[in-house]
């Protein structure tokens, strides 16, 4: 079966303040800079979701886009969009709602909503056009086979 990766881009907005309540103001200011200012601030985030699967011979699709849209709607649009990340994220991955913490929290929530045999392969969250965060999941090596570079010294014939 030929394996294809499909990527769909979504957008959402959220507020946050990078602040660890277990530390004092000076520490937070030192580590997080203006991202720790007391009133908080927000971003227009983009989320790229990549799923991995083989096209169904009857439909030519690896999954119905509606299924992917529904998963993202249930996780992102219903729980995170237009919310304050300090309020809605668990503290499992860290006290301050950085984009790293956000992407780690999103993975299991989305992963369980992707219908098998298709699997979640990669998430990319851009906080601004300058800052992008990428996660390939918790498995030890979920590297795309194609990404493995050619063995040393070999050349295609």
């Amino acid at each position: 079966m030929k394996v294809v990766y499909l990527t769909r881009t979504y957008r959402f907005n959220a507020g946050h303040r990078l602040f660890d309540p277990g530390r004092d103001e000076a520490w937070n200011r030192e580590v997080f800079g203006k991202c720790s200012l007391p009133g908080g601030h927000g971003h227009n985030y983009t989320l790229e979701v990549t799923v991995r699967g083989s096209p169904d011979p009857e439909t030519g699709q690896i999954l119905k886009l509606e299924a992917l849209d529904a998963a993202v709607a249930a996780v992102v649009h219903d729980r995170i969009d237009h919310r304050n990340l300090n309020e809605v994220l668990s503290k499992t991955h860290g006290p301050a709602p950085t984009t790293e913490v956000l992407i780690l929290e999103l993975w299991p929530l989305l992963d369980r909503l992707i219908p098998a045999p298709v699997s979640l392969h990669r998430l990319i969250v851009a906080e601004t056009t300058k800052n992008t965060f990428e996660y390939h999941g918790p498995a030890p090596c979920q590297e795309t086979p194609g990404f493995v570079s050619m063995p040393p010294g070999t050349r295609a014939q």
Binding site: M1, K2, V3, V4, Y5, L6, T7, R8, T9, Y10, S54, L65, T144, P145, G146, F147
Partner: peptide, 21 residues
């Protein structure tokens, strides 16, 4: 190495020549 085809700015598919048994 890769073919990426974008149908719109928000949707693309990639193939790396990968096959499973």
């Amino acid at each position: 190495f890769r073919v990426r085809i974008c149908e719109s700015p928000d949707l693309y598919a990639e193939y790396f020549g990968e096959e499973t048994p």
